[in-house]
């Protein structure tokens, strides 16, 4: 795994090895450079989202424009992004609440009960990791058509609710609860649901927050399934809304300023979640 320095990222070529190893300047300079590169596209997008269509077509014009309010208002109301974002938010909320509920119940059964074929049941759940959406999309679509769930919230959310990952994570978490706590609960004659609500959930707050944040980002960012299952544009989610606003231009001029504004709008919610729940999110990912 030894990679010759000359094959490393171009940004670092010849810079790192030649300077003294304790030189913080190199480290900080390189990091700043990386930050700039990683941030540049969205910063530019944010700037372009304030420009008029004429300004955005002047390639070298990267100064903030004059149409911040107009552009975002147009995108939200004329291009329906208010509706799309609301749809995304409802979908995301339903999926998170559903996922947490069913996974917590299943994990409780798997850890605190003794029943036949316990391991088999766990593996049956785990085996679904082998079935990502692409390997079942056609019949899933057909199923939704048959039960009348195409173009509905039920159709949009239901395939996302069962989660092997969440069951797995909560099972891990529950197994690390000290036996003494469980024993006390048992002696007190606490039932399983009370045990879950009053003992397990408070003890797993961090992980629940982390799982929620990860699920929020994953669900908000879903693209393929909404594209397939939603028929009418008014019911669509924000990700696919980007496809619409970008496609409007096939008729005439693509208003890139509006496309950029839409992109910024769609980026904000998951970004906020990441910033707010960063601590939980990072520790949850690390434990997976």
């Amino acid at each position: 795994m030894s990679v010759p320095p000359e094959r490393l990222g171009t940004r670092l070529r010849g810079v790192l090895p030649s300077l003294p190893s304790r030189d913080g300047l190199v480290v900080h300079g390189s990091l700043w450079l990386t930050l700039v590169v990683i941030l540049a596209p969205v910063v530019l997008a944010a700037i372009f989202s304030t420009q008029s269509t004429t300004q955005v077509y002047q390639i070298t014009n990267i100064l903030p424009g004059t149409q911040l309010v107009e552009n975002y208002t147009t995108v939200l109301f004329e291009y329906n992004f208010l509706q799309f974002m609301t749809n995304s938010l409802v979908m995301t909320t339903v999926v998170i609440v559903g996922k947490l509920s069913v996974s917590l119940l299943a994990a409780t059964a798997l850890v605190y009960y003794r029943f036949p074929y316990q391991n088999l049941v766990f593996y049956v759940i785990l085996f679904t990791l082998l079935m990502p959406l692409p390997v079942r999309i056609v019949p899933l679509y057909q199923l939704m058509a048959e039960i009348g769930w195409l173009n509905t919230f039920a159709g949009l959310t239901s395939p996302f609710i069962a989660s092997a990952t969440a069951v797995f994570l909560f099972r891990q978490r529950f197994r690390s609860v000290p036996a003494a706590v469980v024993e006390t609960a048992r002696l007190d004659g606490v039932g399983p649901l009370r045990f879950l609500v009053y003992v397990l959930i408070p003890m797993s707050k961090g992980m629940i927050a982390g799982v929620s944040a990860v699920m929020f980002i994953a669900t908000w960012n879903a693209y393929l399934w909404p594209l397939v299952v939603i028929v009418e544009r008014a019911n669509q989610v924000a990700q696919v809304g980007l496809r619409y606003i970008q496609g409007v231009g096939s008729e005439g001029l693509i208003e890139w300023n509006l496309v950029m504004a839409a992109g910024v709008l769609v980026l904000v919610p998951p970004l906020l979640v990441l910033l707010v729940a960063r601590k939980y999110l990072l520790s949850t990912l690390a434990s997976g």
Partner: peptide, 22 residues
């Protein structure tokens, strides 16, 4: 009237809407 994309999209969405019963 609602613009639902290009001809291909309207064609596909129409069949989907029929499958969905609406």
């Amino acid at each position: 009237v609602s613009a639902e994309g290009d001809y291909t999209e309207v064609w596909n969405q129409t069949q989907q809407a029929q499958t969905a019963g609406d």
